[in-house]
Computed example of a mutant assay.
Amino acid sequence: MAEARHTPVLLDRCVDLLGIGIAAAREAGRTPVVVDATLGMGGHAAGVLAAHPDVVLLGIDRDPEAIALAGARLAPFGERFIGVHGTDEIIPEALAAHGYDRISGALFDLGVSSLQLDEDERGFSYSRPAPLDMRMNPEDPLTAADVLNTYPEAEIARILAEYGEERFARKIARVVVADRDEDPWRTSDRLAAMLQRVIPEPRNARKRSHPAKRTFQALRIEVNRELAILEEALPAVLAALHVGGVCVVESYQSLEDAIVKRVFRAGTTSQAPPELPVVPEHLQPWLSEITRGAEKADAAEIESNPRAASVRLRAVRKTREPAS
């Protein structure tokens, strides 16, 4: 059962925030439509559909197994749930295909899902032996092994530094290229062991995370184009909100959160020069922050659901249509 395999992070808070946009739709005589841009196993979607009996929810995921599991979980909601297989880049097309031009809310729960972490053959975890795969959609062509075995050394170093914020990116890239000439990279345990050998012990052992964490994050982001897709999808979703609609994003690492902050800030701050005495309407903000900065999970939720420890939740509401 999907319910037993995954606990949604900050579920009640997400449902309450999305409820602001749903209420605005009702006031305007619209059918409330919510997009769950990272459906996973359907935990957040189930919460929204149960709390709001008039909502239609489009759930999007690139993982066909997630669509199947969530579809079974959400079957009791009938036609109010629509599952869509694809990346977040297709959100405008998916809405149009089902006859919707505006949405009341959108939720992004970013990063890798419990479904993917729990299946050894997917290769996302560095704690268990597995093929170096890391594809969220098994139908995609590029794997983590392909990156390690075919990318130039300089490109591997760039990916590790940029997407993993790894201090030892150049050193790791040199070893990756040297070792692959003798034996191509195939398994996660071999890579993790190499990283433990190559990365120095920190001076403060209490601050040590697993030395493979940053490299595995970087490879996963590269294989799945996670940041590039978020850069494209988030502005498209904000454009699709009707006035009063809400966008909620849960990020779990700094690179994701930086994109969210930048996109939200572009809509919540004035675009006029500071010396302008009167700000024309088209330069005024068209989004308003609902959360003050990034909200975090409390100690009780972190204890019951460790994945919540790193969450950063941000939410905005659309106050007007922006100038084209």
Rank of each mutant, 00 (worst) to 15 (best):
P235T: 12
L191N: 06
L230Q: 00
C247I: 04
V237W: 00
P277A: 08
R180F: 09
V279H: 08
G164N: 08
V279Y: 07
I172H: 03
S188L: 05
S188W: 04
A240M: 07
V176L: 04
V260K: 10
R170W: 14
V263Q: 04
I259Q: 07
V263W: 03
E182F: 06
V263C: 01
K171C: 07
A205W: 02
S188R: 12
R214V: 06
V223L: 01
D189T: 10
K213W: 07
E289M: 13
E231Y: 01
A169V: 10
T187K: 03
A258E: 07
R214D: 10
S251A: 15
S209N: 02
D183S: 13
V246L: 12
G267C: 05
F264I: 08
A272D: 13
T269A: 10
R170M: 06
R214P: 05
I221L: 00
S188N: 08
R214Q: 14
E250T: 11
L230H: 01
A258N: 09
R206C: 01
I172F: 08
P202M: 12
Q253A: 03
M194W: 06
P274V: 13
Y163Q: 13
P235W: 10
G244A: 09
P273H: 14
A233V: 09
T215L: 03
N224C: 03
S209Y: 00
A205K: 13
V223Q: 01
S209K: 05
H282K: 09
P274Q: 05
